[in-house]
């Protein structure tokens, strides 16, 4: 097959055709109203009202200009991994070994790494609905198919038959609130 080199250079991959993160579009529309002198009550962005706690700021100030701040171990600075492991002991009373803790660039990178390490292209993945839209969009970009589940009250429990039966989007699947449930096809 003949390829038109110029066209090939300009065509984005099909997998890149994911929807934008919609909240950013709402933010932009709100900003336009404010620029025109309007007042907007902002309830669109899920971000804390304030910044990092003071011990975090102090720790950063103590190293800035004094440390080369080079790369760290890929899995994270060992003392931070140990501190996170201790967090599980303190907060949940559950032992978690520090060597199972991996530091990531936000949960966004955590999802990409988890999906890459756990799924093959074409695997079916069930996710909560309503839920965080980038789950769907990352999975689309990675080539895993997905199925949505319905919103439910917190007491709703799924049954294995309902979770595992082949479903299409819009059919009845049990929801789990703020959880992602990957489903592998039965062998």
């Amino acid at each position: 097959m003949m390829l038109d080199p110029a066209r090939k250079l300009m065509t984005p991959s099909a997998r890149s055709d994911v929807p934008p993160f919609m909240v950013m579009d709402v933010m932009a529309a709100a900003a336009r109203i404010e620029a025109a002198g309007g007042k907007v009550i902002h309830m669109e962005v899920g971000q804390p009202a304030v910044g990092a706690p003071s011990p975090a700021i102090a720790a950063v100030q103590a190293v800035l200009g004094k440390s080369a701040l080079g790369y760290t171990e890929t899995l994270g600075i060992p003392s931070l991994r140990a501190r996170i492991a201790r967090h599980y002991a303190e907060t949940y009373r559950v032992p978690v070994s520090a060597d199972r803790v991996i530091v990531t660039t936000g949960s966004s990178a955590g999802f990409i790494l988890a999906f890459l390490a756990m799924f093959e292209p074409g695997d079916r993945v069930a996710i909560a609905n309503p839920g965080y839209p980038p789950y769907r969009h990352i999975l689309t970009a990675l080539g895993a198919s997905r199925c949505c589940s319905r919103p439910t009250r917190r007491t709703a429990l799924p049954s294995p038959a309902r979770v595992c039966a082949p479903r299409t989007e819009g059919s009845r699947l049990p929801a789990c609130w703020s959880q992602v449930r990957p489903i592998r096809p039965a062998p």
Partner: peptide, 26 residues
């Protein structure tokens, strides 16, 4: 994940890791 992450990103920003460890004291 160590292999994937090393190839994709090398490591997480050092400054953020230092801040995160101290954040537990806040």
């Amino acid at each position: 994940i160590d292999r994937l992450h090393g190839n994709l990103a090398i490591s997480v920003p050092t400054l953020s890791q230092i801040a995160a460890e101290a954040a537990f004291e806040g």
